[in-house]
């Protein structure tokens, strides 16, 4: 009995944690290229979930079409972020703090837009990943079939990203730009395009995470605010804000910590514990605990 409880929590923690990892990746890709944190990072998750809901449930497009269109819009939104928020702030002499506050306001903005358009009540997520009640029984453990989907998608995505970043020119461009902008542009890397790509990659990955999380959190405003967003940041911080693999591992650990604190302490305090972990990691190892990108000094 106890063992199956344990296993169940491990599986649950890993699954949800994987999506936190994806949200963290959104933070990491942007940090790598422009050393900024988009505090509206999590908004992309909410927007993608609502877009998917609109296309699939309301407009009856097929699953794949709805998915692709939603993510394409989110990617375009990433590009818009660069040109309508980042660049104008830079042009008018604003700096990091202005970007922080502007994106914080963006977060409120999207929450209120969604509230105006869809109302504040959560929408049930269409059962594209199987019915909410469908479970897969393995021995004494029952796993919601959604979890398999989430895990599958995250796995595919991580592999795709790995190939993209390690085996293609894009990865090289990213790393070069992250290390030194002037040098990168001197050796002929298009820094502007890299920045655009970073924005688009950042928003679309978080968008996919949003669609994956929706069966668990419903299509709701919860997807666009506070706690989930902070867990994404926590995952990114564990990867030192630059190590993509470390970020996924960070997400997994946060998912696990949160599930086990629910099991052993109380569900009311699960968020408190994740935040305490975030602070401890930041203070104890500001360069991240799963960061193999930079060798320590």
């Amino acid at each position: 009995m106890v063992l199956s409880d344990l296993l169940q929590n491990i599986i649950g923690g890993v699954t949800v944690g994987a999506t936190y990892g994806l949200i963290g990746l959104g933070v990491v890709f942007l940090w790598q290229s422009i050393e900024r944190i988009n505090f509206a990072n999590i908004s992309s998750a909410m927007l993608a979930a609502y877009l998917f809901y609109t296309f699939y449930t309301q407009l009856h497009l097929g699953f794949l079409v709805a998915f692709v269109v939603s993510i394409a819009i989110i990617a375009a939104y990433g590009l818009a972020l660069r040109h309508l928020v980042l660049e104008p702030i830079n042009r008018h002499g604003g700096d990091k703090l202005e970007f922080v506050v502007a994106t914080l306001m963006l977060c409120t903005f999207w929450l209120s837009v969604v509230k105006v358009l869809y109302g504040g009540i959560a929408k049930p997520f269409p059962p594209v990943f199987g019915e909410a009640t469908s479970f897969v029984q393995i021995g004494s453990i029952s796993i919601p079939s959604v979890y398999f989907w989430i895990f599958f998608v995250v796995l595919v995505l991580v592999l795709v990203l790995y190939v993209l970043l390690q085996r293609t020119m894009i990865g090289k461009m990213f790393r070069a730009t992250a290390q030194n902008k002037e040098m990168a542009s001197l050796v002929g890397i298009n820094v502007g395009m890299t920045t655009s790509l970073a924005f688009m990659l950042s928003t679309s990955i978080v968008g996919i995470a949003g669609i994956l999380l929706a069966p668990i959190y419903f299509v709701s405003l919860d997807l666009g605010g506070g706690p989930i967003g902070v867990k994404g940041f926590a995952a990114a911080v564990m990867g030192g804000l630059i190590d993509p693999l470390g970020t996924i591992l960070g997400g997994l650990s946060i998912g696990l910590i949160e599930n086990f604190s629910t099991l052993f302490i109380s569900s009311a305090y699960k968020d408190v514990i994740s935040f305490v972990v975030l602070v401890v990691v930041l203070v104890w190892k500001p360069r991240g605990i799963f960061n193999w990108t930079t060798k320590g000094d």
């Binding site: 940090w31 944190i37 990091k96 922080v100 506070g226 706690p227 902070v230 940041f233 926590a234 911080v237 804000l241 009311a268 305090y269 968020d271 408190v272 935040f275 305490v276 975030l278 602070v279 930041l282 203070v283 500001p286």
Partner: peptide, 28 residues
């Protein structure tokens, strides 16, 4: 205390966590 070591974004994350912890403590 965290501000001794941490700058800008990292510090802002600590303070976000602090605010959230206080909020959750009040609720719970």
């Amino acid at each position: 205390i965290p501000s001794f070591k941490l700058k800008a974004f990292f510090l802002s994350l600590v303070t976000i966590a602090f605010g959230q912890i206080i909020y959750l403590l009040i609720v719970n």
